[in-house]
Design a protein around this nucleic acid. Structure first.
Length: 290
DNA sequence: ATGCCTGAAGGGTTCAGA
């Protein structure tokens, strides 16, 4: 198997992001792209960019709906066994378009948009935890060869938010959410970006308001979680902050992971060791605190 | 000012996001 570049990006409306998405595809040239928050129905997705993607050699698996949510996988290394949705997943009350999976280049890829949760005492929060339990059940069947990519709406540790105090008591950082994520990882999935940058300040989301990106006050909630057979092929992993800059960005940046060719012999793990020291921690407050 | 941006739907505003 040839080297493969996998990316995941919450685009916050594929329609609004088209002027950023297409040039980004041409510049980064990912082989597999998991998208979240496409915010459009499947026929609208095809009308909007089906031709543009075909021109670039991508096959497309979409699972969308009008207005909210919506996920997709673009692949130019094969797209087989496409499965929209998550078997047995709860709805709110009806199933939402939050997952799509396909086999791309021998890897079972799942693009996920985990429910937000809103507030820890809400039905939305309980829905989020139940949905994560369903995701774990689905991944369990192919744990070694699966890669879960997407917006998990959970910061795995306090290291993944600019200031833990700013998020105290809010969703994305509560122990039950982190436990649900840890249970998913306990299947053997590795957090590829954190493994590569264990002590770095790495975020993937910055609020649009109050200059949060400019101050680098964000969270790391977009993850690539890879089973052993995938994780052992990782050559590089990084957050494409350039895509968060300039005019009309999403509030999330893409995560990009390069896989080496699949070993046919005894090629071992090739993740390089980190070298740079940890960056200074931020100390500002959330936007709603003046 | 516990939504300071942004997007969608729909209608002159409201809901949702993290």
């Amino acid at each position: 198997m040839d080297p493969v570049r996998i990316a995941t990006w919450n685009v916050n409306s594929v329609k609004q992001r088209l002027p950023r998405l297409l040039p980004w595809l041409d510049e980064r040239r990912p082989d597999v792209v998991c998208l979240q928050e496409t915010k459009c129905a499947d026929d609208a997705f095809a009308d909007l960019l089906g031709g543009e993607l075909a021109d670039r050699g991508y096959a497309v698996a979409v699972h969308g709906e009008a207005t909210w949510n919506g996920v997709a996988i673009l692949s130019r290394v094969g797209l087989d066994d496409v499965a929209p949705g998550l078997a047995g997943a709860p709805g709110f009350p009806h199933p939402e378009a939050r997952a799509v999976s396909a086999v791309c280049g021998g890897v079972r890829v799942i693009s996920v948009y985990v429910p937000n949760g809103r507030t820890p005492d809400s039905e939305h929060y309980r829905y989020k935890l139940a949905w994560l339990a369903s995701l774990r059940e689905t991944v369990a069947a192919n744990r070694d060869t699966t890669v879960v990519c997407g917006d998990v709406n959970i910061a795995p540790t306090d290291h993944d938010v600019f200031d833990p105090q700013a998020y105290a008591g809010q969703t994305h950082v509560t122990p039950p959410e982190r436990a649900a994520l840890a249970e998913l990882q306990a299947l053997g999935l590795r957090d590829i970006v954190r493994d590569r940058w264990p002590d770095e300040r790495v975020f993937t989301y910055w609020d649009y308001r109050a200059g949060m990106f400019h101050q680098d006050l964000g969270m790391r909630i977009d993850l690539v979680l890879a089973g052993a057979k995938v994780a052992d092929r990782v050559k590089a992993a990084w957050v494409d902050r350039q895509a968060r800059k300039g005019r009309g960005p999403s509030d999330h940046a893409p995560v990009i992971v390069d896989l080496d060719e699949a070993p046919d012999g005894d090629i071992g793990p090739v993740v390089p060791p980190p070298s740079a020291p940890a960056a200074r921690r931020g100390s500002a407050r959330l936007p709603q605190s003046p």
